[in-house]
């Protein structure tokens, strides 16, 4: 992909992010931070690539460390978001 194509995706995604985040209800701002945390660990993709290629042992080790760190975040982030969201309840109708 050429640079301009990537830049276009990036700029448009910033706008999507802008509108989507403004529509998030303030009551869910803490879960928002937890889930953005989890998804930004998609950086694990880079770590996996580094760890999977054999030519450079240094890069492989760095990759493995990256995979470990990002996994903590992915599982922890999604799980804690799930836990928080499960607590938000409406008034029980009696």
């Amino acid at each position: 992909m050429d640079f301009i194509a990537i830049l276009s995706i990036f700029v448009l995604a910033c706008f999507v992010g802008y509108y989507v985040v403004w529509s998030v209800t303030p009551a869910l701002h803490t879960p928002l931070m937890a889930v953005t945390n989890a998804i930004s660990s998609v950086i694990i993709v880079g770590a996996l690539i580094a760890a999977a290629e054999a030519e450079s042992p240094a890069a492989q080790w760095l990759g493995l460390v990256g995979v470990l760190l990002a996994s903590i975040n992915i599982f922890g982030g999604f799980a804690v978001t799930e836990r928080m969201l499960a607590m938000y309840k409406k008034k029980d109708r009696k």
């Binding site: 990537i6 990036f10 995604a13």
Partner: peptide, 30 residues
Amino acid sequence: GWAAAAMGFTLHNTAMIITGALVGSSGAIL
């Protein structure tokens, strides 16, 4: 988020770029 986006540029990876932009703008708005 911006860190993830910058890495997405390096790797030419759309998932990383989209996510980075989302998280970056989310934190900025907050």
